[in-house]
């Protein structure tokens, strides 16, 4: 009995400990998650892609919305180069129906997963929208952070995500591995 209680305590402690966020150089285990339409999407099905971009995005965040057009264009341009772009919405107040409608309105033709209970956002340590994670073909994280350095799109001086993907495709070292930007909070479920 005492042993059983001790095991329960250990399990509870392990469950409550916040995992370290994924860092550049870490490997991701491909996971399955439902998209906003309710269909299971298995990231393992992207095997064969040269790279995968996972992007935490939102429907109501002005910063994320400022990037809608750029994300749609990026996804289309790089799909032809063997790069997959996948959105993840982890905001508790943004429903699957809203995500589907928002994607249609803004021409976001890439898959958008619904991270119920913000479990993946927590695992990743994702804080803002938009926030991108670039994985290579072996699911190693090679770049984390902003799409570029100007949310207005008028005076972009550093195309960080594009530079990282281009370097990866060229077999070169990613020049800037992490770059921060201002963004909206991911609205999480209460703990």
């Amino acid at each position: 009995m005492r042993l059983a209680i001790a095991a329960l305590v250990v399990a509870a402690l392990a469950g409550s400990a916040a995992a370290a966020p994924i860092a550049v150089g870490d490997k991701l285990a491909p996971f399955t998650m439902k998209d906003a339409a309710g269909k299971d999407v298995n990231l393992a099905s992207l095997a064969g892609k040269k790279a995968v971009v996972l992007a935490f995005i939102a429907t109501q965040c002005p910063v994320s919305n400022a990037y809608n057009e750029r994300m749609a264009a990026f996804a289309k341009e790089y799909e032809a180069k063997g790069v997959a772009f996948v959105g993840i919405n982890a905001n508790k107040q943004e429903s699957p129906a809203e995500i589907v409608g928002h994607a249609k309105t803004h021409g976001l033709s890439f898959p958008i997963l619904k991270d119920d209970g913000n479990k993946k956002a927590d695992e990743f340590g994702a804080q803002v929208t938009p926030e991108t994670y670039l994985f290579d073909a072996s699911w190693t994280l090679r770049y984390h952070g902003r799409i570029d350095d100007d949310k207005s799109g008028k005076a972009i001086a550093s195309q960080d995500l594009r530079n990282a993907v281009d370097a990866l495709l060229a077999g070169k070292e990613v020049p800037v591995k992490e770059a921060k930007a201002f963004g909206c909070t991911i609205k999480r479920v209460a703990q």
């Binding site: 804080q127 803002v128 902003r146 350095d149 770059a179 921060k180 930007a181 201002f182 963004g183 909206c184 909070t185």
Partner: peptide, 19 residues
């Protein structure tokens, strides 16, 4: 000025999220 410089200059532990 550069947002990333500001964020890291204030505190490297800050992700840049607001609030």
């Amino acid at each position: 000025g550069k947002d990333s410089d500001f964020i890291d200059g204030v505190d490297p532990a800050w992700s840049g999220v607001v609030p």
